[in-house]
């Protein structure tokens, strides 16, 4: 039973051996928001940007065809489901896997823009995300080695996880979730697609929220 005074009461738990996916008030709220954003990414059309031509009063509007958005839409939905997994999983290794998946899909969303500068930003973010997998999986490995389990359910409230592992977990998620800063760079040079780009920020922030909860709980 899981009733810590950190994230509210437990609403539901599904025991699969020692891996227990669970809903607390906290994770249920996050999951509800993820579902809303998945729906937005799945059904919304991207915005058409206006560019002003300096020196005159003319402006032009970027036209986006449906086919151009297919790849980024797919990746945005995949990113949404990876985020949903990261929010709901009860296992630290699964959480790290979902975090990495979020990183990969984030790269894909940005990279689909096909602009030189945007691709550059995606490449740089990709390197950071790859490096960040080392502390991320390292943290999971340390937790398994010291406590013998990866289940958040079992570890909750025990205080058995070494501080180093928690620090590495946060460091890893910071690496995966740093995407918005790179995407901000891409956005300045105007990659389009509000619902898809929004998903990048959304997934990164939710990873942070989830890792905060995990670190406080275990």
């Amino acid at each position: 039973m899981f009733d810590l005074n950190i994230e509210g009461a437990e609403l539901f738990a599904l025991p699969f051996g020692d891996i227990v996916p669970y809903f607390s008030v906290y994770s249920a709220t996050l999951a509800a928001f993820v579902l809303i954003f998945i729906l937005i990414a799945a059904f919304d059309r991207p915005e058409r940007q206006l560019n002003i031509i300096f020196g005159g009063d003319a402006f032009y509007e970027k036209e986006i065809k449906e086919g151009d958005t297919r790849f980024s839409r797919f990746m945005a939905i995949a990113c949404g489901f990876a985020t949903l997994g990261a929010v709901l999983t009860g296992d630290i290794f699964n959480f790290t896997l979902f975090a990495v998946l979020v990183g990969i899909t984030n790269i894909a969303i940005v990279a689909s823009a096909g602009n030189h500068h945007v691709l550059n930003a995606a490449f740089q973010y990709g390197i950071v995300a790859m490096i960040a997998t080392v502390p991320l999986f390292g943290a999971a490995a340390i937790i398994l080695a010291t406590t013998g389990t990866l289940s958040i359910w079992t570890l909750a409230g025990m205080g058995a996880v070494p501080l180093l592992a928690k620090a590495m977990l946060i460091l890893g998620v910071m690496g995966e979730g740093i995407a918005p800063l790179y995407i901000g760079k891409a956005e300045i040079i105007r990659a389009q697609g509000a619902p898809f780009v929004l998903m990048i920020h959304f997934s990164s922030l939710l990873l942070f929220l989830r890792v905060t909860e995990i670190v406080l709980v275990i």
């Binding site: 105007r190 389009q192 509000a194 959304f202 922030l205 905060t212």
Partner: peptide, 29 residues
């Protein structure tokens, strides 16, 4: 939980961002 309040506050950032991105205007962006 206060942690949930923190989460909602962080989600407000998404709202700000979404408001800016949605319209296609350079100022909002």
């Amino acid at each position: 939980s206060l942690l949930l309040l923190f989460a909602l506050y962080v989600l407000h950032k998404i709202v700000e961002h979404g408001i800016g991105l949605a319209s296609g205007s350079p100022y909002a962006k």
